[in-house]
Each structure stands twice: as structure tokens, then as C-alpha cells.
Amino acid sequence: MGGSTTCDTKSVFIKLARLNAAGAVIRNIALNAAFLAADAGEPIQMKHMASATFSESLKSGSGLIDSTKGWV
């Protein structure tokens, strides 16, 4: 895997900070993304973050999905 597929931590934090979500929800998203990446044997990527955000949005019924446009 090259540098283009590796998640840039700073950019992820910036994107997560722009979510209209409580800190606990952001923590859940980050944790879910880490598990998704580990299960795939990959470093955390925006596809993992977007998938985790989608899952969290379904659980909470919030509009987080719109916030992930352009992440992957």
C-alpha cells in the first residue's frame, strides 16, 4: 500500500471536526473505522471513516451521511 491509500490523520480530524455530532458520536465513528480497517487488514482510510459514519448515522437517526460527501 502506497502513501495515497494511507489515512492522513490530520485531514481525518479536520473532517470529523466538521461533523455536526457530539464528541461521543465522533469517538464511536473513529473506533468503528479502526475495527473496519483492522478487519480488512488495512490502515484506516476515508472509506472506513465514511462507512463508520454511515453506520453511526443509521443508529442515531441523524443526518451525518450528508457530511461524508467527498470523503472517498
Rank of each mutant, 00 (worst) to 15 (best):
T5W: 12
K10Y: 11
S11E: 15
S11C: 06
V12H: 12
F13H: 07
I14G: 00
K15E: 08
K15V: 01
L19M: 11
N20I: 01
N20Q: 10
A21E: 01
A21M: 05
A22E: 13
G23P: 08
A24I: 12
A24F: 12
V25K: 05
I26C: 11
I26A: 10
R27S: 10
R27C: 08
I29F: 07
I29V: 14
A30Q: 08
N32L: 13
A34Q: 12
A34N: 09
L36I: 12
A38K: 07
A38G: 11
D39C: 01
A40N: 11
A40C: 09
A40V: 06
E42K: 00
P43M: 05
I44R: 01
I44E: 01
Q45G: 15
H48F: 05
A50S: 15
A50R: 15
S51L: 15
A52S: 11
T53L: 13
F54W: 15
F54G: 02
E56Y: 00
L58W: 06
K59Y: 12
K59C: 05
S60Y: 07
G61F: 13
G61L: 10
S62C: 08
S62T: 14
L64I: 07
L64G: 14
L64D: 01
I65C: 00
D66R: 02
S67R: 07
K69M: 09
